[in-house]
Amino acid sequence: MKKPFKTTLAAFAASFLFSSSALAAGQVNIFSWSGTFAPEALKKFEAETGIKPTIDAYDSNETLLAKLKQGGSGYDVISPTHEFLPILISEGLITPFNPAGEAYYDNLVDNLKKPAWDPDGLYSMPYYWGTTSFGFDTAVYNETVDSYSTLFNPPKALQGKINMFDSPSEIMSLASLYLGLPFCAEDSKQAQQILNLLKAQKPFVKTYSSKAGSIRENLIAGELSMSTVWGGSFLRARESRASLKYVYPKEGVLAWVEGLAIPKDSRNPENAKKLIAFLSQPENSAMTQAFLKHQSPIKGTDPYLDPALQGAPELYIPDDAKLVFSQTCGEAAIRLADRVWTNLMR
C-alpha cells in the first residue's frame, strides 16, 4: 500500500507544481505610479498573450525603493523615474534584460537610446516621458512668454494667482535653469541665490501644490492664472480652457522619463519581457500616449493618435527647445535643498 500511496502523492505534488507554474506563467504583476497603464492596452495584451496583468500603485520613487529593498515583493514590472534607475542598479534591485538588444529598441526615439542613466541599454525601456515647465492663461496675460522670468518675477496681471509645486527638487531645478546654476547644488552660496529668488516670488504665489488634479481644476476654473506643471497634465487642462498656453523657456526645459524595469526577485521575468515588448510597439504606445497625454518614447505613434492630439504643443517639443534631464542628487545636495525649502516655507 505504501508504494501506490507514494506514487499518488508524487503525482499529486507534480500536478500541484505544474498547476502553480502554469498559474505563474499566466500573470504579470506591475508596481507603478497610479493610473499610468491604459486599461485598453492591458486588455489587448491579455487577449493576445493570455497573460493577466495586475497592478499595485506607489506614490513616490522612495516608496518603490523601500518596497524593493524589503525583498520578496512579488512584482515583475516596475516603472521608476530615470533619475532613480542608477540607485536601483547600484543596490542590485533590478535585473538586466538588455532591451537594447531587442528589435523593439529600434522604435525608440534617438535622444532616449542608451542614455546617461542606462548607457548600455541593459536595465530599462522608456515607457513615457515628458517635460516640466509652467503655463499661463493668455486671457489674463496676453504677452509673449519665453523665459522663467515671467514665473519668478511675475507681471502684475498674474500676481496672486500663481501655483508652485511643493517639491523642493523640481522647484530648485527650475530655479537653477533660470539662474544658470548647476543642478544638485552643494554650494551654500548657490543655494542662497535660489532661496533669494523664491523668497522674492513668494508674495505673489497663491498656493504651493504638486497635486496634478487640483492644478488642472484651478487652471480651468480661472482660480489660477499661472502654474508650474507637467506637459501632459497641462494639455488636459487646455482641452477645457483653450486660452491656456504651455511655455518652453529659453533657459531650458526640465525633462524626465518613466521607464519599465524588472525587479531582481521577479517570479515571471519572461512575462515581464513580453509586456515590455508589447508596450514598446507604436500602436500600443499610442494607447498609453492618448491615455496619459505625455510624450511617447516610440517612433511612429502619430497614425494611431486622435487627430486632436496631433500637433498638440505640449506633446510636440519645438526643435529649438533645450531639454535638460533631471539628475540624481547626492545626500549633501538633498540636505541643502531641504534647508532651502524649510526656510522658504517659514
Rank of each mutant, 00 (worst) to 15 (best):
D137T: 05
A332D: 13
S79C: 08
A191H: 00
S225M: 12
E40V: 03
A221F: 11
P80T: 07
V324K: 08
A41I: 00
S133V: 03
T49V: 02
S21Q: 15
A200V: 00
R335T: 10
A212W: 10
F134G: 13
L254H: 14
K6T: 02
F18N: 05
S210I: 03
D320R: 06
L88E: 10
G92I: 04
F234Q: 04
G232P: 06
A116F: 07
E223N: 15
A185C: 07
Y128W: 11
G311I: 00
N111H: 12
T131V: 14
N271C: 06
L42K: 07
S285Y: 09
W230K: 14
N268P: 05
R238N: 09
G232K: 02
D106E: 15
R346Y: 04
F84P: 14
L260G: 01
L64K: 07
T288C: 01
W230S: 14
I215K: 13
P307L: 02
E62C: 06
A221D: 11
E48I: 01
R238C: 05
G101W: 02
R267C: 07
K69W: 10
L158E: 09
F183P: 03
S32D: 12
S169H: 11
Y304W: 04
L88T: 12
H294G: 01
N196I: 04
I171R: 09
R236G: 12
Q310Y: 04
E46T: 13
S227T: 09
S266M: 10
Q201W: 07
A41F: 00
N107H: 14
I94A: 11
L315I: 03
F183Q: 04
A255E: 10
A116K: 13
K69Q: 15
A157K: 09
Q192L: 06
V253Y: 06
F37L: 05
S225Q: 14
N61R: 06
T7K: 13
L174F: 05
D306M: 03
P307K: 05
A103W: 03
P313H: 00
I317E: 02
K211N: 15
I276Q: 03
K114L: 12
A41V: 00
S173F: 07
N111Q: 08
L235D: 13
Y148V: 06
W341F: 08
L315V: 02
E83V: 05
N107A: 01
K67R: 15
E170Y: 12
I89H: 06
K52Q: 15
V247Y: 09
N61K: 04
I334V: 15
G130A: 11
G252F: 06
L112D: 00
G92M: 03
Y208C: 02
N343D: 15
Y248T: 10
T63I: 11
S79A: 11
S79G: 10
Y105V: 01
A139W: 09
L279Q: 10
A277K: 03
I334C: 03
L219C: 08
T8Q: 11
Q192D: 13
D110Q: 10
P318M: 12
Q327P: 02
K2I: 15
P154Y: 10
A200K: 04
